[in-house]
Amino acid sequence: MREHVAALELLGCATVRVRRPEELAACDALVLPGGESTTMARLAHTFGLLEPLRAAVAGGLPTLGTCAGMILLAERVLDGVEGQETIGGIDMTVRRNAFGRQVASFEGPVTMSGLDEPVHGVFIRAPWVEEVGPGVEVLARVDHGEAAGRIVAVREGHLMATSFHPEVGGDSRVHQLFVDLVRPRSRVE
């Protein structure tokens, strides 16, 4: 989360931590960071944040989900826990821990549409996108190895999601793509 804040502040955005519905209401855009998707969804549910999040995302709040945040934006989750809830919004099926356990976590270049040079993707117990609906734009796929071709970044309207952590490593270009989505919708410039 600290790195997301750093990347966004570098781009001139003000940031707040959202743990309560009233904090959410004050935002022009939202980042759902990495973490444990099961824990995040459970806490959001327990503290009455899940429904406001669903309403806000469905109502057009620009949202970037990274890693666990990608899972939260998925309409459908594979390999989740029983009854795992999501916020939804992107018409996609995401497979949790798709690349394997921590020893299989990796970093490497990711070619992303809209960017000239590859971004450096850090994949930590990362999910991938198993399939997307017709309205979803695929922004990146895995280049190399066994998982080559798997979808790891997507956009649907005001929502964007990556399997990897674009916030790690001081490159804010993915955040820039997201901010470009937000700016036209922002209440204040």
Partner: peptide, 9 residues
């Protein structure tokens, strides 16, 4: 190439 076991991961 993708690299596992780095400090960053």
């Amino acid at each position: 190439q993708p690299t596992t076991g780095t400090d960053r991961v």
